[in-house]
Nucleic acid binder design. Structure first.
Lengths: 297, 297
DNA sequence: TTGGTTTAATAACCTAAGTTAGCCAGATAC
DNA sequence: GTATCTGGCTAACTTAGGTTATTAAACCAA
């Protein structure tokens, strides 16, 4: 951890640091982008959010951010790299619960618990920024808009889990893999990491199996089937979807749980001005455009 | 909906009403019990919570509270009866996502969405109380303690979903059924609905299949196996667990996601007094005892 | 009472995915 | 260079659970 850096978030914002010190600024913070999906932010609110990223740490591929059952002492934002949360099961198998991309908040689900229900590990090299319970409570106290935003993020997280639950309970291997690939395609597209249906997917077939509740062997079989059907081409860690919509069709993918993040309340201006006068400006102008960052937590 | 009743929550609290009007009071509100798991409440906060139950409605078994894809206009607390949320899938099957018991909040996951991702139906006759987005925002503005409590409930909801996800992805039919029955046993025990390992479970085998991602036929087979092993006795809608712990063993049940709802912050008194002075009294005295109401949402 | 409907038990059969194992191609190490 | 390791592909075989069908018991409405 960047212990030697005691610069405030104000100082950090916009400055260029070298070595272990990392650049954070008001414009390109992934977490601010994340929240802009949900509401417009005042400067004060941006600062509150940026404070979450005061303590950037470089982490390496394979690093464990925290272990299952360890004490819950902090949460993290991730600003570079991929991570995943996982549970090791009694029989030696494990389940990967969620893949995190830059802009996501990691571990917020542990807020209500004294011990971690899941471990988190880095897939890639990257940068994470730990923050504390206090920080979260501070946001609750200081900004109703950010609170609602955090609550919305927790709700969307539930929606994503629900979607996966249905797929794991009810769908075939082809549908599961198609769904996962298409979901990653959409999430990566938002953060500009897709080029012509082609993107990097740094996951082994074993890891994919742990995500999808399948054996690695069957993941391989399923990729073979997709290759023969021309639906998915995979070369090491690069994946190409020649026709993403065809894949979505196989998966019976309904993206409303990702895209339809437009609470009724954003559109009720009379109510807005009544309830939120003086706290924060919710702004429907940010809504019509497509969200640009990945889904949170 | 009890449109004719415009009595304030203060008037309702403690009064005895007849016909469509229902009794709500400060002591036995299931939602207040629910929150007491997480924190102690001031009188003002209790009133804020009780306002959620201002509009009790009688509903009948089989009633649809709301349909999938309908507009998100309100949430609900449930004070009597059982309900479940569900998704109908393209192929005619459906997945039951969650069973709600008295004291739970229904539909909070839809906070971030304009349309419902899941429908909700009553299993039993019961009483639900709708409340609005505004109400939730009002709580965010007025009480950091209740906000944190709501956030904690959303987090626990994620934990429960995560647990189910793992079981659906990785476990055998016996483990899934054992897990579900044992979880219901624990939740019902908390609200005093278990007598000597015996409780009412008003779900058909088809509904159980929709919960567990199994066919009704296989649910039947699994019950037969449990009966032969003396693990579970089922007669229509009554279930007896002669040895609940044996069942927990079969399920490899780890209850920390239900019981360990004790955030580190509750125990850090220095931090408490620092952060929360003047807002609400978090109280570690309510913690050591076992929670008494079912898990929320 | 009757006839219709829902729920449950069991059997026979089928299939998707797990398991084990062998092989090969890239990496990485020596 | 060669040896080793990891990740991926394919084949052969096994198995848990799905599907369909039959029967019987509960439940309900007329």
């Amino acid at each position: 951890m960047c212990q030697s850096c005691h610069a405030s978030v104000y100082a950090l914002a916009g400055c260029q640091l070298t070595g272990d010190h990392l650049n954070v600024n008001l414009q390109d913070s992934a977490i601010v982008q994340q929240f802009k999906q949900h509401c417009s932010l005042s400067e004060k609110e941006k600062v509150l959010l940026l404070e979450l990223e005061q303590n950037p740490i470089k982490v390496n591929a394979g690093d464990i951010i925290w272990q299952e059952n360890s004490k819950v002492d902090q949460f993290c934002t991730i600003s570079q790299g991929w991570a995943y949360s996982f549970r090791n099961l009694g029989d030696g198998s494990r389940q990967i619960l969620k893949v995190y991309l830059p802009g996501d908040i990691i571990g917020m689900r542990d807020f209500a618990f004294s011990n971690r229900l899941a471990g988190v590990a880095m897939i890639d090299d990257g940068i994470v920024s730990p923050f504390s319970h206090e920080h979260l409570l501070k946001i609750f106290r200081k900004s109703t808009a950010l609170t609602a935003g955090l609550f919305a993020i927790a709700c969307r997280q539930q929606a994503i889990l629900t979607e996966r639950l249905i797929y794991l309970a009810r769908r075939t291997a082809q549908q599961r893999l198609a769904h996962f690939l298409y979901e990653m395609f959409l999430r990566l597209e938002r953060i500009g990491a897709v080029n012509n249906g082609r993107f990097r997917l740094p996951l082994s077939q074993e890891q994919l199996g742990d995500i999808l509740g399948l054996s690695a062997v069957h993941v391989s079989r399923t990729f073979t089937a997709f290759r023969e059907e021309g639906l998915v081409l995979r070369d090491r860690h690069r994946v190409t979807l020649p026709d993403p919509e065809a894949l979505a069709l196989v998966a019976e993918f309904d993206g409303s749980y990702l895209n339809d993040a437009v609470p009724a309340l954003f559109f009720d201006r009379a109510w807005q001005s009544h309830m939120l006068a003086g706290t924060a400006a919710w702004n429907e102008e940010t809504m019509p455009g497509k969200p640009r960052t990945s889904s949170a937590d």
